[in-house]
Amino acid sequence: MDNPLDTQEKYSKYVDKKSPNSPILKNCFNAFWVGGLICSIGQIIANFCKYQGMEQQSANTVVSIILIGLAAFLTGLNIFNKIGKFAGAGSLIPITGFANSIVSPAIEYKSEGYVMGVGGKMFTVAGPVLVFGISASVIIGIIATFFVGG
């Protein structure tokens, strides 16, 4: 009989075959409509601000502030993680997911003190995004300056 424990490759294949897969279609559908809903809310806020006489750029800033504030607030109420579990990337990709990824470690590590706990561990989840996001923007900025004639 073929023994899946013979080699690491065989075991890896065996595990892949036996493990239940994530329900991709369902996840995609939920991510699609929740993500779309969050973006629509953002657009409604932006249109409302412009209707009130704000410029496009200021309206965009107000949208970010409101959505970040809302996501942080819902994280504190233990509601955002339920939305995230349901919607996956739908709530993760918009700016709401970024707010959640900073607020959630802040809450979790509050028990280790405000300086080393909240302050030190706040970026454990979002840290890589910041490091590589900022690095990438610096590199692209340099390229744009020298080659595109920024």
Binding site: N81, G84, N100, S101, P105
Partner: peptide
């Protein structure tokens, strides 16, 4: 991950 993080398991 922190419990409050909205990720899918």
């Amino acid at each position: 991950f922190p419990l409050e993080l909205g990720n899918q398991r």
